[in-house]
Amino acid sequence: MSSFGKAFSSSIGKKLVVGITGLFLILFLIVHCFINSLIFLNDGGETFNLGAEFMAGNWPIRAGEIVLFLGLIIHIVQTARLTYENRKARPVKYAAYNGSANSKWYSRSMGLLGTLLLIFLIVHLANFWVVSRFTGIPTHDVNNRENLFAVMVETFQNPWIVLLYVLSMVSLCYHLLHGFASAFQTMGWNHKKYAKLIISVGIWYSIIISVLFAAMPIAIYTGLIN
């Protein structure tokens, strides 16, 4: 096997892939959250639809979408593989295991949180991505742009969907709380000069992103934004 082959089949190399794809998804969430937050301008979705049109009609971004899906799939496949190996590393379980004495519950539940996020993603992509890319957005706004905002308003009239989105953002928050700093640790970036900064940026990032995303369905359902 080549040096790179050996590197990426080692435990550290496999984790590096998880960390890098994780950070890539973290970057994507910033863009996604920024554009979606345009609905908070409460202008009937005009600015948001402009943002959506820019994202859809821009070939580098469309190409980036493919990279994004690849990154997501690699992140999922690689973590599933690591989880399988980790289970094998302890064939006989403890009768008593006090995990909360030494670690945060969400750091031990990344697989569960990730699976919840995957279920959410399937619903979420069916709600919006499939509509905007394939089945077509039925209405246009005052500027004759595809009215993705109208799709959003319609989707979030269903309280169950709103509940799913809000609970999923709680999962996202905890997944990021561990994932953000963990990715840097795996990349070897745990150093007295940077540790505090990375940890606090990670906490703020996780909370801000999740709260903004969770506020969108709530604001639309309650009619604060229309």
Binding site: A7, S10, S11, I12, K14, K15, L16, L82, E85, N86, K88, A89, R90, G99, A101, N102, S103, K104, S107, R108, M110, H178, A181, S182, Q185, T186, M187, G188, W189, N190, H191, K192
Partner: peptide
């Protein structure tokens, strides 16, 4: 198994070995 950075090892180590060592090993490995 593979490390998932839960930090449980650092908390339970009787000699207080820090997780910074794992980061250093990862850097050296890359």
């Amino acid at each position: 198994g593979n490390c998932t950075n839960t930090r449980a090892c650092e908390a339970e180590c009787p000699k207080g070995i820090s997780l910074e060592n794992i980061a250093r090993m990862n850097r050296d490995y890359y």
